[in-house]
Design a protein around this nucleic acid. Structure first.
Length: 823
DNA sequence: CGTTCCCGCCACCCG
DNA sequence: CGGGTGGCGGGAACG
């Protein structure tokens, strides 16, 4: 059937990849021009392009280089064989030639990776479809995944805007973050674990808890993750509810960004993606479908050279998987500059704080199905809100009640609606403007417009000392904190920091809100020495191992180098807060100290970031704990914030902001609070609001944490996660991505974080196994299974001998070696 | 035979 | 109601 079509439609000249294959319509030029490399699929395109526009040509040329890789080559080979065989046959396009991946390549060839702002980077679906000589349907697939990476955005029906890779890094960072918040790492581990168990004891139903927790609790559903600049563009068209492919794509990417060997098997990915929306019913067909989709996505991602296909060989045989080959994604942005700026204090952040809403409109519970997006008015709203917020922030206001009703209606904002007409124009302008802004920002140290708003942080506040939980006591220095230390132990909700008691309402059902950008994140403080040392070494190794094709740049290295083992900062004495503030490489003690001091006075978020490592919401500590304090001290601020949210506008946006508040405890967990609850508790509301529109929340006491953990199913009911240092030890040195912190820095505020992280660590931690590492292609994965039952955390704490290395012990039991082979 | 995944039916959604 | 979108899964090409 295809043949006919092909013939019929093949009129679009160069589009066809195999010139010779098409006797009838053989494009005349191809041969001449492609002396050496006649078979590069893109070659035709190039010609086409060059003929069409000189401007594009250059892009093409550049792209040409990259094209010579992967897919293209394969295609080439195939074709060659094909030709040599029965050259003249009407070799129908042969399935491969029609592959989505190739198609995507062709598509990409038309647009520059980094388009200049002023340009008509518009994409017309019809045109493209025609040019590429494929049905529209296929283009949608490509565009959808590209859109998920914000490489394009829909402007209107049949029309997209091309952004190229400009937003890529930001997007990835955002995705990574969301992935972390979603506990993807844990989910992956869980799945693997289950798998593992299945293998040996066919216990189908054994881990109810696991299943349960996974199914119901974790079920953190998130929707499309937006980038700051691109929120509602195309709202009118953007209506589509599901966006499943887009969302799937994002999630898929997140998995890579979050998992340590950056390899994800289709199977696991599929399970996670499924698990998310529906509890796990091992629906066979569904699984199959999911996998099919994943292949589609993977093909596109491969074309983008973000991933590549590999095979993971396990006992069970080899499974298809993909390995991330894209750029390394630094946890927190803002720091491209770190290295350079290290010694000095980063420039104060003067920018108005972008509202979180803007950054992520994502947070809509997918279920809620209130299609806010549909209202074009929203576009306008977003803007106006932004403005309002700025104004409001500085303006005195009286606290207003926050409208709990999420269902705002557009009706409520007539004025906004009225302004709609102007939107389009605005958008355009905005775009270009934005582009400029971006550049500007990049040059500044604060790279990310949206990503790292230091926002609220700037308020002078007492350092994190008060860390939520235990007030003073925490100051303990490094040594291993005795488990007992957990006076704050779990179950009981002793006193809340502020003395105010509050309740946290979890919204299990409701998905969590994904906060794309939480300004208030910081890396874990860790003694620079340890981390650094480790980092500098392992990461490289890992990278090499994993990346054998010698692909690329190992960004990490540079960073790593920056702060080598040289410094053995003895920061012990420093307070947690100080440590937190430090940047790992800015280890020069003197500098550090000074800086820290300064920081204390004025918390500058930027300072709180470490070049790489684990991100932890820091602000929260400060804010949360100080709740009481805040109330008094920061009342002004709080009220302001309040106002902002409660304004009518807020009502709309609220979707994002007020609908669900995410109490972002340690990275992995995301506790959602209903707006109501927030409102109910002064402490929370204040802290939440004040602490940036992000998901930041006050640090609940460890007990709360435990509660949460249990509730969520991260830890068995009986187990308590002590707010003790031991946990910290969980970290495995070999982890390239996450910086491990030594037990030493435990501190008040930190405790809570630590505790929470535990789960994350366990799962994710990877024992450092040099040998393994040395074998190229071999990746080790750890599954932790608990001999005595579901994670016996308790044993862990028992183990706490002060220093780390527990990693290898109890939790990580089996360690399997997986071989990854290239295709 | 298992993997990969193209193709296009057809349900949505919107104007 | 027509046209743009895009789930979805059969089943064919591929290995």
């Amino acid at each position: 059937k295809t043949p006919l079509k092909q013939a019929a439609t093949s009129r679009s000249v160069l589009t066809e990849i195999q010139p010779e294959c098409q006797p009838l319509t053989t494009p005349p030029k191809p041969k001449e021009i492609l002396p050496e490399d006649p078979w590069t699929p893109t070659s035709n395109l190039k010609m086409l392009i060059s003929a069409a526009s000189p401007e594009i040509r250059s892009r093409e040329q550049r792209r040409e280089l990259s094209n010579n890789t992967s897919v293209v080559l394969q295609a080439k080979h195939c074709l060659q064989e094909h030709l040599s065989g029965h050259e003249y046959e009407k070799t129908q396009p042969s399935r491969k030639e029609k592959s989505l991946g190739l198609l995507c390549h062709k598509f990409l060839a038309w647009y520059p990776d980094y388009p200049s702002t002023a340009e008509n980077n518009y994409i017309c679906l019809d045109e493209v479809a025609e040019e590429l000589n494929v049905e529209r349907r296929r283009i949608y697939d490509i565009l959808n995944v590209l859109e998920s990476l914000h490489m394009v955005s829909r402007l209107a029906k049949n029309r997209y805007a091309w952004h190229g890779r400009h937003n890529l890094s930001k997007t990835l960072q955002a995705l990574k973050k969301v992935g972390e918040e979603n506990k993807y790492t844990q989910q992956i581990q869980m799945i693997k674990k289950r798998e593992y168990e299945h293998e040996f004891d066919l216990d189908g139903e054994r881990n109810e808890d696991m299943a349960r927790s996974f199914g119901s609790n974790e079920h953190l559903e998130m929707s499309f993750v937006e980038l700051p600049g691109m929120e509602f563009r195309a709202a009118s068209v953007n209506s589509r509810k599901d966006k499943s492919l887009r969302v799937m794509s994002q999630k898929f990417v997140m998995l890579f960004l979050v998992s340590t060997p950056q390899i994800v098997s289709l199977e696991v990915a599929a399970k996670i993606l499924i698990g998310e929306d529906q509890l796990e019913d091992l629906d066979k067909s569904k699984f199959k479908t999911k996998i099919r989709r994943l292949y589609d996505i993977a093909n596109v991602l491969s074309s983008l050279e973000l991933i590549k296909k590999v095979h993971v060989t396990e006992e069970r045989g080899r499974k298809p998987a993909f390995k991330w080959t894209g750029p390394e994604v630094l946890p927190s942005i803002q720091d491209t500059k770190l290295e350079t700026t290290s010694t000095t204090c980063p420039p104060p952040i003067s920018e108005p704080i972008p509202s979180k809403e803007q950054c992520s409109k994502n947070l809509f519970p997918s279920r809620g199905k209130q299609n806010f997006t549909r209202h074009p008015s929203l576009i306008k709203l977003v803007k106006s809100i932004e403005n309002d917020r700025r104004k409001i922030q500085s303006a005195p206001t009286s606290p207003v009640k926050i409208s709990a009703s999420t269902n705002q209606d557009s009706a409520a904002f007539p004025s906004e609606v009225a302004q709609l007409p102007a939107i389009t124009k605005d958008k355009l302008e905005e775009q270009s403007k934005k582009a400029k802004e971006m550049k500007t920002k990049l040059s500044g140290s604060a790279l990310e417009c949206g990503l790292s708003f230091p926002e609220i942080v700037p308020k002078p506040e007492p350092p994190f000392t008060t860390a939520a939980m235990q007030q003073p006591a925490l100051t303990q220095p490094l040594s291993a904190c005795p488990p007992s230390h957990s006076s704050v132990s779990p179950v009981i909700l002793p006193q809340t920091p502020s003395g105010v008691s509050y309740t946290i309402y979890l919204h299990p059902s409701q998905a969590h809100t994904v906060t794309t950008y939480s300004p208030s994140f910081m890396l874990q403080p860790l003694p620079g020495a340890n981390v650094t040392g480790i980092k500098s070494i392992n990461p490289k190794v890992l990278n090499k191992i994993t990346t054998e094709e010698g692909d690329n740049q190992i960004a990490t290295d540079d960073v790593t180098k920056t702060f080598t083992t040289t410094e053995r900062p003895t920061i012990k004495s420093e307070t947690v807060s100080q440590q937190c503030l430090k940047r790992s490489h800015a280890l020069q003690e003197s500098h550090l100290i000074k800086r820290c001091r300064r920081d204390e006075e004025n918390l500058d978020t930027s300072l709180t970031f470490f070049p790489s490592g684990y991100l932890i919401p820091l602000t929260q500590c400060a804010h949360g704990n100080k709740a009481g304090f805040l109330n008094k001290e920061k009342t002004g601020t709080c009220s302001l914030q309040h106002t902002a949210y409660s304004s009518p506008i807020a009502g709309v946006i609220p979707v994002t902001a007020s609908e669900l508040k995410a109490v972002n405890i340690p990275a992995p967990l995301n506790i959602m609070l209903s707006p109501t609850s927030i409102a109910a508790s002064p402490v929370l509301s204040n802290s939440c609001l004040s602490s940036s529109n992000t998901s930041s929340a006050p640090n609940p006491s460890s007990s709360v944490l435990n509660f949460t953990l249990q509730h969520i199913g991260l830890i068995p009911a009986g187990v308590q996660v002590p707010a003790n240092p031991v946990l910290q030890h969980m970290v495995v040195p070999s982890q390239p991505e996450n910086v491990s912190h030594s037990s030493e820095d435990l501190q008040e505020g930190e405790v809570s974080k630590t505790a929470l992280q535990l789960p994350h660590r366990w799962v994710e931690g990877e024992p450092s196994v040099p040998k393994e590492l040395q074998e190229p292609q071999a990746v080790t994965e750890n599954f932790f299974r608990t001999p005595g039952g579901p994670n016996s955390v308790s044993s862990l704490s028992a183990n706490s001998d002060g220093t780390d290395r527990i990693s290898q012990g109890t939790l990580y039991i089996p360690q399997r070696k997986l071989e990854v082979s290239e295709d």
